[in-house]
Design a binder for these strands. Structure first.
Lengths: 222, 222
DNA sequence: TTTGCTATCACATTTTCGTGTTAAGTAATT
DNA sequence: AATTACTTAACACGAAAATGTGATAGCAAA
């Protein structure tokens, strides 16, 4: 793909403007040089902490923001993304980090990051990922993708502990989860309150919980 | 349950065995030729419908199954994956289809597919994807990945009614959702039980609910 | 200054919940 | 025929939660 390097001040039409938030000086500088040295990319700002980024990025309005996870100061990268994304929904964020844990990945995606790549990624792939996220993709390694996919597969199958429940107990638990009072459940299922209490008691025993809320949380696999 | 026979495990150490379920004859044959013509890959079976695949794949035990979406007969590719995956959790499934709709993607992932690639993918990339899924990745185009990521971001945004809560109330609600007793919440937040009660009362009023479970359900957007 | 929102604490009463114990009828299994 | 598991039901006790009302105080906006 060739880029028509016009010298017009109305930039960001063909050139992808990028901001970098990364506390490590060497990495930050290396990425800045890489981006500014590549046709079609321009680094419009670099920041070593979330607070400054938070303050400056609204003025720079880059197309893509590369964000580190750990940053000095009170705000981490996730929170920084969440705030900026809320204000600028069209801005694209890409996590650029060393972490591969599920927690961090999901937090980043929920906060509004669209891409998630590791710092060990090669310069060429990094540039490609920046273009990719700018064009509506979600660049991530297939290992990262597998984590995300695993989340779906987990969601799909319910807690195995629920299998131990009888069908009547599941029915009761479903009613519990909807917030019905015992008397309402009794009336809904045409049984006495005492029976409801008995079932609830058995359910709690099987799920190893001691309260309705905990039981419902298990029911929804939390 | 995943017991491979001795002689099979020996030659499937380096070679990835693949099965293809695809009703279009030309595509099926082309893929078979591609796979058998490439070093490190072996096509151990091809099927033009889900029923036959269902019956034969348990005997073939391929490492990777390429699955089409639409198949003739009663069973579609999704259901076929779901059944086989339940019996052979270590078998890897990759959707190979023309569809890019969210529904189909999510259905496939929930059923147990780990990869999702489009039929327009080049032969080289297909082979790479097969190896990738076999090695624990989840190959998918970054456009597909974006759909999946978007799902997370949708999930993430909470019930707008929660916006009406003050930050303290949200904190209380979060504690409620975790099943803490009032006294525990009081102790966790260093306030009196009476204050907890007051907050809970206000929360219920703002969310228009009358019980803890209902409040928690709203909190989780159900 | 007043008004409104938030956070805090208190008292009284009623209702619901969690637990323990007992037990009868049914259905499936051994 | 005996055993086991499930569903149903009742009574009692104490803890927890819900309801209703009243009060004080800080803080910010009108």
């Amino acid at each position: 793909m060739t880029v028509y390097s016009k010298k017009k001040s109305q930039d960001s039409m063909d050139i992808i403007s990028v901001a970098i938030v990364e506390d490590n000086h060497d990495i930050r500088t290396a990425m800045e040089l890489l981006i500014n040295g590549s046709e079609g990319y321009a680094c419009v700002g670099t920041f070593n902490n979330a607070e400054t980024a938070q303050e400056q990025i609204p003025h720079l309005l880059p197309n893509v923001v590369l964000m580190d996870f750990n940053l000095p100061g009170g705000m981490n990268g996730i929170e920084c993304i969440a705030r900026l994304k809320a204000e600028f929904p069209d801005m694209q964020f890409m996590m650029l980090t060393v972490y591969e844990d599920d927690d961090k990945i999901f937090q980043a995606l929920e906060a509004g990051a669209s891409g998630y790549i590791l710092k060990k990624t090669s310069p060429g792939e990094l540039l490609e990922a920046i273009r990719d996220v700018h064009e509506g993709g979600s660049p991530m390694s297939s290992q990262i993708a597998r984590r995300v996919v695993a989340y779906f597969q987990k969601q799909a199958k319910p807690n195995p502990a629920l299998e131990a429940l009888t069908s009547r107990e599941k029915e009761i638990l479903d009613q519990l989860s909807k917030g019905f009072l015992y008397k309402e459940i009794a009336s809904n299922l045409y049984i006495s309150i005492e029976t409801v209490r008995r079932h609830v008691h058995n359910i709690y025993e099987k799920l190893h919980v001691r309260s309705r809320t905990d039981a419902v949380n298990k029911y929804y696999n939390r």
